[in-house]
């Protein structure tokens, strides 16, 4: 046996590489790429779930969005929801993480408690929230009455419903974002705070703005983009809590796509909506990597 036979010929190694990566590539193709392509194709047709056959209609589905009243309502609802959800889902976990990080006792218990909603099934938890938020027998309204306030029609009032949904979503995401912030906080060297306190920055605001916040920036960027995407992906809470009601007041973007596709059977229009959504998410993700890269080269 000579040394040459130990080295596989080049073509053989290449073939092996393709062979080994084939199953994963096939699955990615089957699960991600083909459906996206299918959605892309369908969005240029008048395909519907209830009729056989279809014809190409060009950009009609996309043009329809600009005239669709429901589309504009859904877009507006999504933006309002995001405006309530994102600050809550960002600031609350940050404050909690900072508060918890300094504790020695109960720290792990608190971490587990706040993280629990993340591990539970959101749909099941949402059912519990529906009971809690019930306008007549709900525990929250009972509490409010007990405290001397009036009842709030949490899910039935068009002006309140988006706030209620945002509240439930924030509750669900606090633990996750808090753990991310905790990881970021732990990575900040302790002696920077000591240097800061010797330099005179021992006021909590100074500590935060001079040390914590700048060093937490990469984490904060990740959390904010992640939260932004989560905000636009809102679906299941709406589906379980309100079904878009009252009177479309909580009909958000993905719920509209669902309605169009599976309730109104306008599959082609739903595909167009999904593609627009996908494009926006792609842009956000791209922006995040760009920002992340810039930060890394600057550091």
């Amino acid at each position: 046996m000579n040394g040459d036979s130990l080295v596989r010929p080049e073509w053989s190694r290449v073939r092996l590489a393709y062979f080994l990566s084939a199953p994963a590539s096939f699955l990615i193709l089957l699960i991600y790429v083909l459906p996206i392509l299918a959605v892309f194709m369908i969005s240029f047709t008048d395909y519907s779930l209830v009729y056989d056959g279809f014809s190409f209609v060009g950009l009609d589905n996309y043009k329809q969005m600009f005239t669709d009243r429901h589309f504009l309502t859904a877009l507006q609802n999504t933006l309002i929801y995001a405006a309530i959800f994102i600050p809550g889902a960002f600031v609350l976990p940050l404050v909690l993480a900072i508060a918890i990080q300094r504790r020695r006792r109960f720290r792990s218990i608190l971490e587990v408690l706040y993280f629990m909603p993340v591990t539970s099934t959101l749909t099941a938890m949402t059912l519990v929230w529906r009971a809690l938020l019930d306008s007549n027998q709900g525990a929250i309204n009972n509490l409010l009455v007990g405290l001397g306030f009036g009842k709030v029609n949490w899910l039935g009032d068009g002006d309140v419903v988006l706030i209620s949904i945002a509240m439930v979503s924030v509750w669900g995401v606090i633990g996750f974002n808090m753990v991310l912030f905790l990881a970021g906080l732990t990575a900040i060297p302790k002696n920077l705070y000591e240097a800061a306190s010797i330099d005179g920055a021992d006021h909590p605001l100074d500590r935060f703005f001079q040390v914590t916040w700048p060093l937490l920036a990469p984490t904060a960027l990740f959390v904010s983009v992640n939260t932004l995407v989560t905000a636009f992906k809102l679906f299941d809470t709406v589906a379980v809590l309100t079904r878009g009601g009252p009177d479309r007041a909580s009909e958000v973007y993905l719920y509209l796509a669902y309605l169009e596709g599976f309730e109104n059977f306008n599959m082609a229009y739903a595909c167009a909506l999904s593609l627009v959504f996908l494009t926006v998410l792609f842009l956000v993700a791209w922006l995040q990597t760009r920002l992340g890269d810039r930060r890394r080269t600057h550091a």
Binding site: P189, N191, A195, A196, S197, I198, D199, G200, A201, D202
Partner: peptide, 30 residues
């Protein structure tokens, strides 16, 4: 008295410079 009220300076073993600040900002901090 807190460290800042003692009017002391300290050089740390690993320097503890603020990584997000320029050299000028680091020195200007106190």
């Amino acid at each position: 008295a807190s460290p800042k009220d003692r009017n002391i300076s300290m050089v740390f073993q690993d320097y503890a410079l603020y990584p997000h600040m320029s050299v000028a900002q680091n020195i200007a901090m106190p």
